[in-house]
């Protein structure tokens, strides 16, 4: 994983898999208003994924468009982080995942907006506003559930404990990338720390740090997600609405 193709692919896969997971909430949200909010966030992620994968296809120069990259790769060819492919769990787990993801994506897109690559800069400038809203929304729920009832506090803490190890992979050094993710860890901690404190939650200790997503080594969950996402396109290649 070195060139701009790998970088655009990794970011695009993060957004695509996050969109697919969030889309699973549609019609299952805790209330109708939240159902719409989660679908909106999923569509934001999908929009960023389309731009990034289209650009990745152009950088590769092998004639693959966004659909070829999204629908015609196996799980070993996906470069998303493990965090986004984890199952949704309960609503607390989904919000914990979204908090960590958006607290990573926001400074990433903001830094991209100022990078030398004009296409990535334009994508970053567009996506950063959406990420700011995602982060705001996730933090709002984490605070309410963490500092809510005894039961909501218990489940929110369990959710944060469950997904925290997967945050470390996001900031693995990537020398030579348009933006080195290792430089974003400070922004992440400066935002997530106070949110957890305000939510009366304990920041989990750093220890086990699962990784491998950027090298195509995924959890068992990704292939199931891809099977559902890709089945239509593989059964009916080129199908359109």
């Amino acid at each position: 994983m070195t060139g701009p193709f790998d970088f655009a692919l990794a970011l695009g896969d993060d957004a695509l898999v996050a969109a697919q997971r969030l889309g699973e909430w549609t019609s299952r949200g805790p209330e109708m208003e939240e159902d719409v909010a989660l679908a909106n966030i999923a569509l934001d992620q999908l929009g960023a994924a389309r731009l990034l994968l289209t650009y990745a296809g152009e950088l590769e120069g092998a004639g693959r468009d966004e659909d070829a990259l999204a629908y015609l790769r196996g799980d070993r060819e996906f470069r998303n982080c493990l965090l986004v492919e984890l199952p949704n769990g309960d609503f607390a787990v989904t919000m914990a995942k979204l908090l960590l993801l958006s607290a990573y994506q926001l400074p990433l897109y903001a830094a991209l907006a100022g990078c030398a690559d004009e296409r990535l800069a334009a994508i970053g400038a567009k996506a950063r506003k959406e990420s700011a809203y995602h982060r705001d929304h996730a933090a709002l729920w984490v605070r309410r559930l963490g500092d809510g009832t005894a039961e909501s506090h218990r489940r929110m803490q369990a959710a944060v404990d469950q997904v925290w190890p997967y945050a470390h992979e996001l900031f693995a050094p990537w020398p030579g990338a348009p933006v080195d993710p290792a430089t974003l860890r400070g922004d992440f901690d400066a935002y997530v720390g106070p949110v957890l404190a305000e939510a009366t939650l304990t920041r989990p200790a750093d220890g086990w740090a699962p990784a491998g997503g950027r090298d195509g080594l995924h959890t068992e969950h990704l292939s199931y997600l891809l099977a559902e996402m890709q089945v239509l396109h593989r059964a009916h290649p080129g199908a359109k609405w």
Binding site: E33, E34, V36, A37, N40, D136, H137, L140, R144
Partner: peptide, 8 residues
């Protein structure tokens, strides 16, 4: 949250 929902 009402403001967030209204936005959406």
């Amino acid at each position: 949250l009402a403001l967030h929902n209204a936005r959406d």
